[in-house]
Computed example of a mutant assay.
Amino acid sequence: MSIKTFELISTTENGIELISYIALPENASDDNPVAGILVAPEWWGVVEHPKTITERLAKAGYAAVAMDVYGEGKLTSDAAMANMWMEQVLEDPDMLMARCRLILNDFSDQLAVDGDKLAAIGYCFGGKVVLDMAREGMPLKAVATFHGDLTAKQPADKNFKAKVLVTHGREDSMVTMDAIENLKKELDTAEVDYTIDVYDDAKHGFTNPNADERAAKNDIDLGYNETAAKQSWDNLLEFMKANLG
Rank of each mutant, 00 (worst) to 15 (best):
M67R: 08
K74S: 00
E42L: 00
M95N: 15
M97R: 14
L90I: 04
A202V: 07
A112F: 11
L57G: 07
D106N: 15
A64S: 15
E181D: 13
V113Y: 07
L150N: 05
A190W: 14
N32I: 03
R56L: 14
R170L: 10
T52V: 03
V65E: 01
A216Y: 10
D201I: 07
T5Y: 03
D31Y: 14
I53E: 04
F146W: 02
L244W: 05
M133Y: 15
L38D: 01
A80I: 07
K74N: 00
L38H: 00
M240P: 04
V39C: 06
D68V: 04
V69A: 12
D172K: 09
P155E: 09
K117R: 11
L8I: 00
A64E: 05
K128P: 03
M95P: 08
Y21E: 01
L18C: 06
P50D: 00
C100D: 14
P139D: 11
A202D: 03
E7F: 01
D234K: 14
G45F: 00
I9R: 06
D201H: 15
W233T: 15
E186V: 10
D94R: 05
M1H: 12
Y194K: 04
G36W: 02
Y123K: 07
L24H: 05
N225D: 10
P50H: 01
I16S: 03
L90M: 15
H147P: 02
Q154A: 10
K117Q: 12
A120H: 12
V175Y: 02
E171C: 07
K163R: 09
W233A: 04
R170F: 14
N225Y: 06
T167R: 08
D201Y: 10
Y224V: 13
I9M: 01
N105D: 15
A98G: 11
D68L: 10
A119C: 07
M177H: 12
G245R: 04
T5R: 06
G223N: 06
G122P: 11
D78N: 15
A82P: 00
P41C: 01
A119K: 11
T76A: 01
Y224A: 07
D94N: 13
G15T: 02
A40G: 14
A23D: 02
G126K: 03
T207Q: 09
P155S: 11
G122Y: 12
V69I: 12
R101H: 09
A215K: 09
V192F: 09
P25N: 12
